[in-house]
Design a protein around this nucleic acid. Structure first.
Ligand SMILES: [Mn+2]
Ligand SMILES: [Mn+2]
Ligand SMILES: [Mn+2]
Ligand SMILES: [Mn+2]
Lengths: 219, 219
DNA sequence: GTATAGTTTTTGATTAGTCAAAGTGTAGCA
DNA sequence: TGCTACACTTTGACTAATCAAAAACTATAC
């Protein structure tokens, strides 16, 4: 029923509302995240409210209704299952799958998706370590701990990569920064704004603070 | 570059021009085949001509240029490879894949398609027996012989099913009318407009003349 | 040769999604 | 308490794709 455009809006709004937990999602964030002008976002919010997918308070922001949340969650599921298929079955690189899935997610039917889920063995997370919601919209909470929050000398497991850009993903892969790998924080240079890392037996390397926050880990 | 709508138009026009070999494809056929009003087809033809995908002569019809033909052929390839994937890999029924592929064909990139082609072992025809064009747009010619053109008592191989409707495909499957099966024309009742058939060791059954022409065979 | 039926084209309108640019509201500083 | 900068909304315009209905052709059939 919703158009591909509407699907993208609802998915983005859901992701934003899960990230920055603060009630309403503001217009600016929505516009930026979808790459449209603020006016476009405003007028779209009115349409989405008319369809009962969210409630919109002028100059306050927007909050998804259960039906809007449901569509958003379905889109996240489609996206991540497709990414998994593209890497696991077709052997594409994890840096190039996001854009592919961004289009395919609007074309795949519920029926095909469920077959794909079975074919893939009901995976729990995509190649970037992002949790895949169940058919009923239940999604695992990601750990909040980033590489930056860890203590020097401790060994941690990489859970998830938050940056989807091909450039960063290619870099991360080269350094071994991938979900499942074990990483040790060798040094934390506060003054230089960097940390030094070692992934398993690979060579050490440095990461800026900002980048370090894009890697989620668990002990 | 072309929108999904344009892709559908070019694919349909190419298929029509291959079926009814008579120079130009008339407006009415295009409109019917795409399920739009004649006026819509006319105005779209002007746009497609502007983009150099075809040449349009008012009240004559339309003829694809090489670039239009190329896009059309790519769409046929995408459609048929996707149908093959949906049946071979995901196990969907051959009666339900046409509609799925009709949407997915606009969402799949060249890169993913070529991976899929390799994954499937470079199939030469789809589940309905339709030939899959190569990457360079070369397509096998279908036999022109239908069940109706065959002699009583001869055993023939089913090559292709021309009707895409789920109802007919479900019926055909139940009767064993599928590409690769051997079929014998038992009787030809001209006065009753029917033929009687036997597929391998399955029970005999009848088909109307019109329907019989939807099944392509070879000796 | 005209009348007519069937096709095709034209015209005018609609919808979804978008932008640019002008206008408005407000949070926080002075 | 008032000002200003920034966030947001409004307005007017545009494009792609479509339809309904009126108008214009054209191929026959008589
Ligand atoms: Mn998308
Ligand atoms: Mn991902
Ligand atoms: Mn299509
Ligand atoms: Mn087919």
């Amino acid at each position: 029923m919703p158009s591909a455009t509407v699907e993208n809006y609802l998915k983005s709004i859901l992701k934003l509302s899960m990230e920055c937990e603060r009630g309403e999602v503001p217009m600016g964030m929505i516009a930026t995240s979808l790459g449209v002008t603020p006016g476009t976002a405003t007028s779209m919010m009115k349409n989405l409210q008319k369809e009962k997918w969210l409630s919109y308070k002028s100059r306050k922001g927007v909050r998804l209704t259960p039906s809007g949340k449901k569509i958003g969650m379905i889109m996240i599921r489609r996206h991540r299952l497709l990414e998994t298929f593209l890497v696991e079955t077709l052997g594409l690189d994890w840096s190039e799958i996001h854009e592919e899935a961004e289009v395919l997610e609007h074309a795949i039917s519920e029926k095909v998706l469920e077959r794909l889920d079975i074919f893939l063995g009901k995976p729990r997370h995509d190649p970037h370590g992002h949790p895949i919601p169940t058919k009923n919209g239940i999604i695992r909470r990601l750990p909040k701990k980033t590489l930056l929050d860890s203590l020097v000398g401790t060994k941690m497991k990489i859970e998830s990569i938050l940056d989807q850009s091909p450039e960063f993903l290619t870099f991360a892969q080269a350094k071994g920064l991938m979900p499942g790998r074990m990483v040790t924080l060798v040094k934390n240079e506060k003054v230089a704004d960097t940390i030094e890392l070692q992934v398993e037996k690979m060579p050490k390397f440095s990461l800026g603070y900002k980048t370090a926050q894009k890697i989620l880990v668990s002990d």
